[in-house]
Design a protein around this nucleic acid. Sequence first.
DNA 1: TCTGCCGGGGT
DNA 2: ACCCCGGCAGA
Length: 447
Amino acid sequence: MAAMGPEYRAGAGGAGTATCSSELQTCISTTTHGNDGPNMQQTVVCAQSCVQTEKAFIRSVHHKRKTSVRLQREAERGWSNLATPPQPAAPTVHLANPSATGEAPYSFRSPESVEMDEIMAAMVLTSLSCSPVIQSPPQADPVPACSSSSADMECGGGELSDSGSSGYWSWDHGNASPAPSPSVTEMDSSPDDGLHMELEQGEELNAKKPKSSFRVVYKCLWPSCGKVLTTSVGIKRHIRVLHLRSGSDQSQREEDFYYTKISCETVDASSAPAPPQLALGQVSSSHLSWASCGSPLASGLQIPQAHRPRSNSSSGPGPSRPSPLSQSAPSSFWQIHSEHLYQACSPIQVSVAPRSPGCQGWTPTAPVSGHNNTPMVKPRCRSVSVGEQWLQQNRLQPMSVSPSRTHCSFRKGRGEAKKCRKVYGVERKDQWCTACRWKKACQRFPD
DNA sequence: TCTGCCGGGGT
DNA sequence: ACCCCGGCAGA
């Protein structure tokens, strides 16, 4: 909606009077899709103001994350506060005077123009206040497909607006950067985001390659489904609606486990399947763990024979972005790691360290082996298993570099993990791990 | 009361 | 290093 701003402003030319000394031209950078170029997803919405109402609006732009109600109040205050000059600088709003921008001074503004400016400002502010995360820096926000030259990649304006109206992008990117995780004290977003950016930039470049363009498809990993969609939104919706049958937040998080992202090279029209290594290399890390676990669904990661025509029907700008879970995994991992630092302090931990995270060194008995070796038996339990596998695969690495804490004085609360006593019972105490037998911290089932 | 496990002691 | 257990704290 804000995309009509520049065209309108360019067409109207703008107006202004010399008497409006405090006239401001406010350029609000917001992210829309596919406007200024393949890499530019920014649209500069220029809202000029001459009357005090617009001054108030511009001042309220400084608080662009406030609610529209608050904006309305700001506007009203602006009416009653005519003498107050507008505050010149705000970090997130770029203010430019006309001389700086080289535009001609405005000499006349029709009432319609003023009204339209008000409408435009209101629209801009509404968009800012309603979806603040859209303007967050992760510019990797999608739509390489719109600029892609491949003819079969539809720009999918309907899809785009549909996903936008559902608030999905806001949710997704809200997970990505701006919302601070309550459990992580310090948001160490640089490595993950960097990887994220690299991945997306690489895929974006791949998508723009005229010779060998990569198409990213999303394959549903639900057993006996294998539906392939070209958008993550579509595949998430498909999983949520068809498989999870729930619209809760939990299912929104779970659905990331049930699809995989596949990049395949579209060399010619027949779209020969990409090599599996390539596909696996493009798959996000959470799904790599699936493949490395030797799950039966790892074979499902193969590239489909051809892109189904119906996948284009629901296709849109297939943004290649890691799943929210894969983004949030490292932070949660550090949280869990810090929870279990006490384990590294135990002298018994030395015997645990070299064991492979995927295959446990101990001889599994029936309930445990069923839990670890067949993670795909129950689909609803799959996400948990994958998460555990992910954690197990990543847990030992930082433990080896954990600081040498010689003394762990705090007593850890009891987790919900099963222990040897609970699994085997007291009558089979000989099957307990040594630590449990010695009443030490359990090695076999660490929390 | 059960459970997990820390701390300490014995061998 | 291995083994055992008292005792604390959480569920």
